[in-house]
Design a protein around this nucleic acid. Structure first.
Lengths: 217, 217
DNA sequence: TTACTTAATGACCAAAAGTCATTTAATAAC
DNA sequence: GTTATTAAATGACTTTTGGTCATTAAGTAA
């Protein structure tokens, strides 16, 4: 148990404990990755016992969903802060890619969102998460529209599509093959992986798509 | 145990047993989905006992990797068979989308390939799988090039990029929110999901990308 | 000081992946 | 036809995990 706070009674104290757990979860998952993450260890990292975790989160996946929500927020703020008038499409998508990759949690969680995390989550949490997503999309689109020279509707389409492309493109980096690149992978397989460099793949096609949207294809 | 074959001695018999397990796994996973799949139940469905499964597959994930390999092959054959001279880009990508969705296993397994399945698989199996993937890509690109009016290099890029886009676009359909659409989802969240209709999303952007590749953007 | 509420605990359960000594079909040797 | 040999098949076992819940005790109010 934490030295200062032994038992959370008020709503603020409960929120503090929740944040304490999330903080620990963030460090822990960053350290060991998604697959090795266990609730027992998270309890240790948080300075509480396993049962306590379930007073603050219904399931393991709800912890991850919360971390995803936070990382989306964090990335959105960072990305929009870096937007500048007069950027080319290329600059825009490169910034998007690089800010997203720079966040250690956003991509790994985004990539697992629908097939893994959203299972085993209460509908309330899911709806709340989707609403936050809508807000983020709209916010980013609002700030992107003047920069890309698009109307709001087009900008919303761009932002949504960028998300789709990002997940698809970045997939390969998430597999174990990527980590084995240095080792004894056969040349043909290594060449395959190289041809799937996610940054190149994303940027190139993102530009094509923005161009298509701008010309109303 | 199977009535006819009690013990597999020859190499052919072992292959037959392996196929028997894979056949059962295919039905089973189609029925209950990826998340609910367990090795104990697979043993029941296969008519063997759990330990026997591990004589034919090193891990649960290796079963899935094999199923993925099969489904890729199956889809590739089906798709290329349906290709016809004179197709528009739109016809091409629509056929691609629809044949891929029609296969009950291909998409669910593809979507989990890197982040879930490829973990916990022996490197041999992984290399073999990647090699089969390379062959499929090249085969499909070969047959697509004349239809799309592209050279081989461009066609390879198209096929690879279609895969990337497909995974990204189809993601949303894999979440549980999709199944709840009929129910008591709030209107705003439902509208969000509708705006992410994977078929529209895929087809539209696939056309944009092919156009970009054709004009060497 | 006492009574009360409920956050925190940790022993517990169920499910699931994977292991391995033992059993026993199938074949070979005689 | 009988016996010896091989290794496929078995199922009891271990380990690890997510999740539960009766019990304990910290904090508050009477």
């Amino acid at each position: 148990m934490t030295a200062g706070l032994r038992r959370a009674r008020s709503e603020e104290q409960k929120q503090a404990r929740r944040q304490q757990i999330l903080q620990a979860a963030e460090h822990y998952v960053t350290e060991v990755g998604y697959e090795a993450f266990s609730m027992a260890k998270l309890a240790q990292y948080s300075g509480v016992v396993k049962g306590t975790l379930y007073l603050y989160f219904n399931t393991r996946e709800e912890v991850f969903l919360t971390l995803y929500n936070r990382s989306l927020q964090r990335w959105g703020e960072r990305f929009t802060q870096c937007l500048v008038q007069g950027m080319s499409d290329y600059d825009y998508v490169k910034l998007l890619y690089q800010t997203a990759s720079a966040d250690g949690l956003f991509i790994p969680l985004l990539v697992r969102l629908e097939h893994v995390i959203e299972h085993n989550v209460a509908m309330d949490s899911l709806v709340a998460s989707k609403r936050q997503f809508i807000n983020q999309i709209n916010n980013i689109a609002n700030q992107s529209a003047p920069i890309l020279g698009l109307n709001l509707h087009q900008a919303v389409e761009v932002v949504k599509t960028m998300g789709v492309l990002l997940v698809g493109a970045i997939r390969v980096d998430q597999g174990p093959t990527w980590r084995w690149r240095q080792e004894n992978l056969p040349a043909d397989v290594r060449a395959l992986l190289d041809s799937f460099s996610s940054e190149r793949l994303f940027i190139k096609n993102a530009c094509r798509i923005i161009k298509g949207i701008r010309t109303n294809d």
